[in-house]
Design a protein around this nucleic acid. Structure first.
Length: 103
DNA sequence: TGCGTGACTAGCC
DNA sequence: AGGCTAGCCACGC
């Protein structure tokens, strides 16, 4: 049950295509836990250590790299996103709507 | 068993 | 328009 929650989050996050990004709320809603968007973020935090989840492609609703600090403490997250053709400014995805991916 | 915390979101001031 | 507060659920201590 609860464990499946993480599994579902990983499954959706893993489906994020290259050069695309999504939000915690979208993933949460996809797995039927729209209100648990925070848990999705928490799941990302631990999943990043176990599963090979592209957590750098997951941002908050505003397109801000909230987990940037959580990644490795530097701008690694931004570097990865920029490497995929995503423009970022001030820890925020500029054309979020253009790169946003809907699960 | 219970309180505090957090990669969020939406609403209110 | 921008910043702050409250609500939410799962996990750790």
């Amino acid at each position: 049950m609860n464990n499946d929650f993480f599994q579902r989050v990983y499954e959706v996050a893993r489906q994020i295509p290259y050069g695309k990004v999504t939000t915690y709320g979208l993933i949460a809603k996809k797995i039927g836990a729209e209100r648990s968007a925070r848990i999705v973020g928490y799941a990302m935090n631990v999943s990043e250590a176990f599963e090979d989840i592209p957590a750098h492609r997951v941002v908050n609703r505003k397109g801000v790299l909230t987990g940037k600090l959580h990644f490795d403490g530097t701008n690694l997250m931004q570097q990865l996103l920029e490497s995929e053709g995503i423009e970022i400014e001030n820890n925020t995805i500029k054309n979020l709507n253009d790169h946003l991916w809907f699960p």
